[in-house]
Amino acid sequence: MSILLSNISKNFGKFSALNHIDLEIPEGELVALLGPSGCGKTTLLRIIAGLEQADEGRVLLSGVDKTEQHVSSRGIGFVFQHYALFRHMTVFDNVAFGLRVKPKKDRPSEPEIAKKVHALLELVQLDWLHDRFPDQLSGGQRQRIALARALAVEPSVLLLDEPFGALDASVRKDLRQWLRSLHHELNVTSIFVTHDQEEAMEVASQVVVLNHGRIEQQGAPSDIYDHPANAFVSRFIGQTNIFTLEQHDAQWLQTSGLQIAEDQHGKVAHVRPHDIDIQKAVDGSTAQAVLKDWQHLGALIRIELVKDSPDDSGATVFAEMPNEQFKQLRLNKGDKVSLRIRNAHWFH
């Protein structure tokens, strides 16, 4: 089911949580609402669900205006950050809840319910826990039960509020992959909220970047990474080095191989760490930086460089390169290096 939001605004007192949001989500996508905390992403999700009412604007699901409809009749599945499992019910009863509250004429018989619940529990690989209570489960298990419960009513839209936020890192990684493959299998239009850009890039087919109640950019993860629409998106997605175009920086950037056109003066250059090549300086004249330190990030090495210019306060520049390549350079702390910037994004 496609989702269309038009001109959504929401204020809490004087605070404007959402500011004239227009958003279209085609059927079958797995969309991430990404933004720093307080940007309005959870509020937007809750408005789509009907758990919150927008001050202004319409919510259309499959082209049908659902703005005035109560959450219980919108046909959505909602997964809460802290799971919100019914703690007085077993896992089985939790998942069966949505089926048992259906009006009598739509309600499946108990054997049908049991069959469906067990199928769902198998889908989330937790059927063996069906008679436990939520308090007896781990965080990751609870989240999967919450998902199974939401899927039981066959929602046309699945909404997940920071689904992995309360889990520890290794569980989170597994669940991300799992959610992706589950979405592949079920193909239900899904939106999840996250403040973790890595999570958004890894899981989603579409990313919507929000800030201060506005949409900054919407697109495929690679699009957003390679072509950030503005300085905020560039800073928020992945690491970036920021160079302001003052006199010395301009000179320094030009010797690093960056083309600076006339109209780019007064602008700011954003450079990804992996767009910087470094080389051991042959002599002092080609050197622009001093190697300060480095950290291992698995396959990559993050290199900390200090700009080597006499009147500069020594701002740090980050570069990244594969492990092997770094080893071949045989660099030590304090070595002078020359660098080459391959690509930069310019913003005001």
């Binding site: 669900a49 758990l51 109560h70 959450v71 219980s72 009749s73 919108r74 959505i76 599945g77 909602f78 809460f80 802290h82 919100a84 499992l85 019914f86 703690r87 809840f97 949505g98 509250v101 259906k102 919450a146 419960r149 939401a150 039981a152 009513v153």
Partner: peptide, 22 residues
């Protein structure tokens, strides 16, 4: 935890059902 109520409601429960069973 009022999110339990919201969860029940999102699963299609009426207000009475939310009160009685949650």
């Amino acid at each position: 935890d009022s999110s339990m109520e919201e969860a029940a409601s999102s699963l299609g429960a009426s207000r009475l059902q939310v009160f009685v069973s949650i």
